[in-house]
Structure formats: structure tokens, C-alpha cells
Design a protein around this nucleic acid. Structure first.
Lengths: 254, 254
DNA sequence: TCTTGTGAATGAATTCACAGCA
DNA sequence: TGCTGTGAATTCATTCACAAGA
């Protein structure tokens, strides 16, 4: 788990399963789209289809949040948007910093999906002095010497690492020391952090390797040489669903 | 599951759990680093630490591949690298195309972690005529009119979608029609694909939302207003591990 | 003696299937 | 009547703990 639910607080089952938390953003995205089309209500079946999951799972997920639907009718779109946003903590402002403004860092800085969801790029930081002052996505890049000050001045608690792998652990340590408690890591390294700090990672290369694994199976797979040879053919019948499967993200440097 | 293991072929348990497959690239990365340092053998304990998982899980994972270790000693690094690479299908060449050469597409094109793992960027494709011919990462961008021909000429079976959300489904359909059977989707949309096609997604915004959820908990969380009010404080004691947790990736447009 | 490989136990997530309510 | 909400059943993943083997 990225974040172990240690003991359960007191009242009510404040223990929303991690797998459910990971799907809430999907539901939110689907709901937002419905909201923009002024759709007033939606059934679990419809919403599940839009989010790419099955309806039983969706209803179970929502049951952890409370009873926000109406039997025989469905869910009120606006109300659900609000409830899920609140649950995810998106009703407040989250300043984030991006460290490492290479190709990837720049892509992230330009990503539009932030502001709309409570995230605000508070600063861009890079170790290259030549980058300092240069605006990326309208925000001037600052030198990493000032990292600690930037974090503190902006009250940043979420940091994004988009540096090369070699620099990631050091950057991570500085971020944590300065007060960051959640890190999104794009560098292909395992970061070690103290308790109380969450790390999530995104690794392109890993995702491709997982695809390659499945791809290999499809081709009819005959030989593959050594070790107990694989049984021929057996035409796999992949089910073609999205990723609501529980596996891992992947990493990527700038 | 991203790819349902339908019936089990014949011989041997050719059913490697999806969660295990998702960790193999992590092990491979750690092993590659050891290999570069010419470390000859490694114990499950050491390797697990390097990969950020626990050793029982690692041993169980390896047990699905076969018995590649030596009791009392550990694993031969080179041998394991080979076995895992073979299992993941990385001993062969995988040509990939990247569609949508915006900031993100360019970042992906420049990503170095490809070639070293059997992936080769066969072509970059964009819908903007102004981009055509312009080299990105040393590869000339081609116009999307030629998508089908490019896929077929290069025998591409893996496609990466880095277009804006609005274009993703259409691109996906053209890729699939042209013969692509695995897709890595960076656009924040649910793609629908026919059976037999695998889709994995990477969504930055979702990852941030998951972090925000946990971040919200840490702050001591008092009010939060409506719905059954959350119990005060209860100082969460997050365990700070990496993402080998089974949750979802996230998405992002160019 | 040390570390793997693995059954058995536990825990988490998903799916089923239907009672309960609008 | 129709759709939600949820216990119960099932499937999948992790962890334990120790026998087997170098």
C-alpha cells in the first residue's frame, strides 16, 4: 500500500479501501463530464460504463462514502461531484512544486488538468542555472538553491520529481526536510522516505514492459527456448478492459 | 485485470499473477543496477530492499517463474536478469509508435529507458501538418494521414497515445484497425477497445488526487463539515513505502 | 548454517444476488 | 417497478512460518 491505513480512527468506518480511493478520481472525471452536459442524474450502470468499471464495484465503492443515491432513480450528479471532491480533498487548494524542468517537467507544467481540480503549480525548480528565470508555461523557473525557501513560502506539501534518476533521492530528501509529505515520482528509482511521507510513482518503462509481457502471450507463443518450454498456441482470449485493475504505475526521467 | 488470464493453457502453471507481472520490471531494474556493479549474486532480502518490496513477496513472485535461486546462497544476478527479461518478452525487439507529439510526446520520445529494454521508437506521429518532417529526438515527425501505413510497414503492435483527450478515442480506433494490440494511454479518457486489445493508462491528475486524499488525512482533519463529521486528529501513522501497492495509474494529455 | 521455495493462514478486493426503499 | 445498498461468497494477493536443500 502506498499508505497503510494503520489503526482505524474511532467512529464510522473511516477506512475507505485503497482500491476505492484510486477509483474515485475516475468517477469524478466521468461525473464532471456529465455535469458539463447538464445531466441531472445518473444510474450506477451508466456511470460505471463511463468510468470503465462494472456497476457492482461502483456501488460498493460509493457505499464506503455514504448513501448518496436514490433507489429506483440513481445518483444526483452535482451532489456526487461535491461529495467525491470533498472526500478526495479537492475542495481545498493544493500548491505543488515541480522539480526538474526537462521535457517531462515542462509537459507537466503545461498540463491543464491541474487548476480545475484544486492543484496549483506554485513553482518550477531546476538545478540548471541557465534555466533560472526562463518562463515555462508562464511560470518562471527558479534555481534549486532556493528549494527550501520556495516550499516554505508557499506552504507546499506535494512535490513532483521529474529529474533524472540520479538526482531524485537527493531532491526527495530536500523536499521532505523542507516539509513536503507527498511525492509523485517520475524518476525511475525507488525513493526511500521516512514514515509519514507518501510516495507514488509513474514509470513509463514499467508500463511498456507490462504491455510487452501480455503482447508476447498473444502472438501464439511457441518456443521461447530454455526452461520447460511454453505450451504452443492456446489462443489467449484477452479481456479488453481499462486499467481499473490493481497493478502498478511506472517511472520516467526528464 | 488489464488482461484476464482466461483458461490456463496446459502444462505447468503458466498463470503468473498480474500483481507479480507488474513487479517484474522493478526487480529487473534493481538487478540491472547490480549487474552493472558486477555483483554476482544477491539474496532475496537484498534484492527486495533494492526493489522496495518485502522478501517474502519477492520469493513468492520468483517461485511463479521457476526455481532460479540456490538455497543458502541467493540468486545469480545475470541469470535472473535473463530469465526475467525473457519472461517479460524483452529479449525481442518491440517497435512502438508515439502518437501526439506535444510536450509529453516529445518527452517520451526523448526518454532513454526504451532502447535498453527492447523498445524502439519506430515512428512519431502528429496531426499537425506543421510538425511533419520536424525531427524530435532525432526522429522526423510524420503526419497522421500515414498512420496505417507506418504501423504496417514497421510491424508495430504497441502504440502510445499522447494526444489531447478529445482525439484519443479516434486515434485508438485507427491504431487498432491497423493492427496494434497494446496501447499505453496518456490521455485522460477511458478508451474503448475490442477484445484482445490491452490498454494501460497513465494519468498524472489521478495520481495527484490520490496523494491529496492521503494528504488531507494527515493534516489532523477536523471538521470537513457535512456527513457524519470526521473524528478529530487520530494522528495517522502512514507507512512510507513505494507504490508496489496495487492501485491505479493515471492519465495526462500532451 | 543460511537462504530458498512453498503450503497454509490471513487479509483485501471483487463479484454475486437480493432485500429494501423510492 | 427499478435501482441502490450491502451481506455473503468468491477470487486474488500478501504474509507467515518452516521444511528442504545447498
Amino acid at each position: 500500500m502506498a499508505t497503510g491505513r494503520t489503526h482505524r480512527p474511532a467512529t464510522r468506518s473511516r477506512g475507505i479501501p485503497e482500491a476505492t480511493v484510486a477509483r474515485l478520481p475516475l468517477y469524478l472525471r466521468a461525473l464532471t463530464a456529465l455535469s458539463e452536459r447538464s445531466v441531472p442524474t445518473v444510474s450506477s450502470e451508466e456511470l460505471a460504463a463511463a468510468a470503465g468499471v462494472n456497476s457492482a464495484k461502483l456501488r460498493k465503492d460509493f457505499s464506503y462514502l455514504g448513501s448518496y443515491g436514490t433507489r429506483g432513480v440513481g445518483y444526483d450528479v452535482e451532489y456526487l461531484v461535491y461529495q467525491i471532491s470533498r472526500e478526495l480533498g479537492l475542495t481545498q487548494d493544493w500548491p505543488v512544486v515541480i522539480v526538474g524542468i526537462g521535457n517531462l517537467g515542462a509537459a507537466l507544467a503545461n498540463y491543464g488538468g491541474f487548476a480545475s481540480r484544486g492543484f496549483r503549480v506554485a513553482a518550477l525548480i531546476d538545478a540548471d542555472p541557465a534555466m533560472a528565470g526562463k518562463p515555462v508555461a508562464g511560470i518562471p523557473v527558479q534555481h534549486s538553491d532556493d528549494l527550501e525557501k520556495i516550499i516554505q513560502d508557499n506552504g507546499v506539501s506535494i512535490g513532483v520529481i521529474a529529474t533524472p534518476a540520479g538526482a531524485a533521492q537527493a531532491v526527495c530528501e530536500r523536499l521532505v526536510a523542507a516539509g513536503v509529505t507527498s511525492i509523485l515520482n517520475f524518476a525511475p528509482t525507488v525513493l526511500s522516505v521516512p514514515d509519514g511521507v507518501d510516495v507514488r510513482k509513474v514509470d513509463l518503462s514499467i508500463e511498456l514492459q507490462i504491455l510487452a509481457f501480455h503482447e508476447q502471450r498473444k502472438a501464439g507463443e511457441v518456443a521461447a527456448a530454455s526452461d520447460g518450454g511454453v505450451p504452443a498456441a492456446a489462443a489467449r482470449n484477452e479481456s479488453a478492459d481499462q486499467g481499473p485493475d490493481g497493478d502498478m504505475p511506472a517511472v520516467m526521467p526528464a
